[in-house]
């Protein structure tokens, strides 16, 4: 007979299970070892194609290497570069600005929309949900090309501005020295807002209606109810939306590659784009690796921070 101690069904206090597991502890051990066989394919592929290259990148980050000739060890020089070379540290700052557009604004929009819409609209929601999730399934390369066209001199944005009498401020938005980064960021806002809104609305649906009744009895108005019932209620969704969108902002590559390619004059350069350019067109593999590590550290720091902040808010 199979040993129940090796399955999910172990329940504390069940005498049968306890005696069985003691009697056949060697069988249990064999089973737990055999379980590793099932893990092997996933572990091998994941380790070979993700973990091993990740560790290799750390090694590469200490080298001066063009990808062809023999490398020389330069210690932490490549990391020092990130702080000294304006091209590198400005790219990191640009990525931080993108967080405002990819995360802060979409989360805010999502929360406002949740307050306005929750519980009140049922009919036709399938249609709206399908539309609001659409930007999530499209390749960002295609999104980028679409927005290049919207932002172009003859594009729909300028057409609209001219139509409402703002013809004087029309321009090629992605080529504008001061505004290109914001124009790029706004594409992120467009991609992420629907996701945040749908996540929050789904979360808000799970809130116990009695909480609103109680708040109402305490004399709370709609705004107060939103702040003290809805907001805490969707906290897990806020956390996860912030994590997903922040990673997308910091590591964004596809959008920048097809819209501005870092220009004009490096105004929209981001770490991911530099990692690619340094490693594969400029032959500075070491610097590229150090920047990739720095980017990863930045992502981990932000994810940890977001989790901590939202946990403490409870």
């Amino acid at each position: 007979m199979a040993n129940p101690a090796t399955t999910e069904v172990v329940r504390p206090g069940s005498p049968r299970v306890r005696t069985t597991s003691r009697r056949s502890s060697s069988a249990t051990r064999r089973r737990r070892t055999k379980a590793l066989v099932y893990l092997a394919p996933a572990l091998l592929i994941y380790t070979g194609f993700v973990i091993y290259p990740a560790l290799n990148t750390i090694q590469l980050s200490f080298l001066d290497w063009d990808g062809v000739q023999a490398p020389t060890v330069v210690g932490l020089d490549n990391y020092a570069q990130i702080f000294q070379n304006p091209e590198l540290y400005r790219s990191v700052l640009n990525a931080l600005v993108l967080i405002v557009f990819f995360t802060v604004i979409p989360v805010a929009v999502g929360l406002v929309m949740t307050a306005l819409l929750m519980g009140k609209v049922r009919r036709g929601m399938t249609f709206f949900r399908t539309v609001f999730f659409l930007p999530q399934v499209l390749p960002l390369v295609a999104v980028g090309i679409t927005w290049r066209w919207l932002y172009a001199e003859t594009g729909i944005l300028n057409q609209f501005l001219s139509a409402i009498g703002l013809g004087s401020i029309t321009r090629a938005w992605l080529g504008d020295y001061d505004l290109a980064l914001y124009a790029l960021g706004f594409i992120g806002t467009w991609v992420m807002s629907g996701l945040c809104m749908m996540l929050f609305l789904a979360g808000a649906q799970k809130i116990d209606p009695a909480l609103y009744e109680a708040a109402k009895l305490d004399g709370a108005g709609p705004l107060r109810q939103h702040l003290s019932v809805t907001l805490p209620g969707v906290r897990p969704e806020i956390t996860i939306a912030s994590v997903i969108t922040t990673i997308a902002a910091l590591a964004s590559f596809d959008l920048v590659f097809v819209t501005t390619d870092g220009g004009p004059a490096n105004q929209t350069n981001v770490p991911a784009l530099l990692v690619y350019r340094l490693a594969f067109t400029r032959g500075e593999v070491g610097t590229a690796s150090a920047l990739a590590i720095a980017l990863t550290v930045l992502v981990v720091v932000f994810v940890t921070l977001i989790r901590r902040i939202t946990r403490e808010a409870s």
């Binding site: 993700v50 990148t57 690796s289 990739a292 992502v299």
Partner: peptide, 20 residues
């Protein structure tokens, strides 16, 4: 160990993976 991979950006692995 697996969940860890959810936060790792592609940029971290792509350089070394290419050379490997």
């Amino acid at each position: 160990f697996f969940v860890l991979g959810l936060t790792l950006p592609v940029e971290l692995i792509v350089i070394a993976l290419y050379f490997n």
